[in-house]
Design a protein around this nucleic acid. Structure first.
Length: 256
DNA sequence: ATGGCTCTCGCGGAGAGA
């Protein structure tokens, strides 16, 4: 089973690029973030023609998450309880009674002084509470976490410590998520390697290697123990036949 | 660098992203 997470930065702007990627990589289950699309506008027929059932939790212009799957899906949770005002950022589905799959678009925070930073921390507290109440043996929590887990995961290393995305408060929240029984699949498989999943559009960041690893696939022990491989799909951070890429690349994990 | 791209809304240019 091939699972993936991808912040597509606008479904409308990325649909053709997304279809190309699905046909090329053939993932079984995909969590998408930043659709910036209302649910009614999602072209389900187009994706069913490609073999994918879709479930969306969207909103106009901002945020929005979805799961695409080649296996039957049922919705378990749409929206993080108590955090509705933060926007459409969480979707949990059951995949063919084989896997509980949650995708998240965690708040950005903007700056340490902005109200959104406190909102980000509170959102993570709610996520921890939400996950703590779940108990599926085979579960995945994936998405855009908007936190750089350790200095190894950002191009500026320890020089970025304390900046937004790199604060102790944010990293402590992520650590508490992991302590709920989840493993960061990439870091588990490649303990000392550096890879990124996001690069700024500006200033040639991609080609200069100025990126961050903020898109994560976390799994329970049952998922981790069935991990074959995991990595960033860097080719899809690049333009494809004139189609612009998202500023995030897909992250793909292959499981037994 | 003092955010230099790209997205959405909507028709100009502002706000957000990370």
């Amino acid at each position: 089973m091939k699972i993936a997470t991808w912040n597509i930065n606008g479904f409308g702007a990325r649909m053709d690029f997304l279809k190309r990627w699905l046909a090329d990589r053939q993932p079984d289950v995909v969590g998408l973030q930043e659709l910036k699309l209302v649910d009614d506008a999602f072209p389900h027929d187009d994706f069913e023609a490609l073999g994918y059932q879709a479930v969306t939790h969207g909103q106009k212009a901002w945020n929005g998450v979805a799961v695409l799957s080649r296996l039957p899906l049922s919705v378990a949770q749409s929206g993080l309880p108590g955090q509705e005002e933060a926007g459409a950022r969480l979707l949990t589905v059951n995949v063919a009674d084989q896997l509980e799959f949650t995708t998240v678009y965690c708040p950005n925070g903007k700056t340490l002084e902005h109200d959104d930073y406190e909102m980000k921390l509170a959102w993570f507290d709610a996520l921890i509470e939400f996950w703590n109440a779940r108990n599926a043996e085979r579960a995945v929590l994936c998405g855009d976490f908007n936190i750089v887990p350790t200095p190894l995961d950002g191009w500026r290393g320890t020089k970025a410590d304390g900046d937004i995305f790199h604060t102790k408060q944010e990293r402590d929240r992520l650590q508490r998520v992991l302590e709920l029984g989840l493993t960061d699949l990439y870091r588990h498989k490649y303990p000392g390697e550096q890879t990124f999943s996001w690069w700024d559009y500006r200033g040639g960041s991609f080609h200069r290697g100025h990126g961050l690893r903020i898109d994560l696939i976390l799994g329970t022990a049952a998922v981790r123990d069935n991990l074959l491989d995991v990595g960033t799909d860097r080719d899809y951070r690049k333009k494809q036949d004139g189609m612009t890429a998202s500023d995030h690349a897909p992250v793909i994990a292959e499981l037994h």
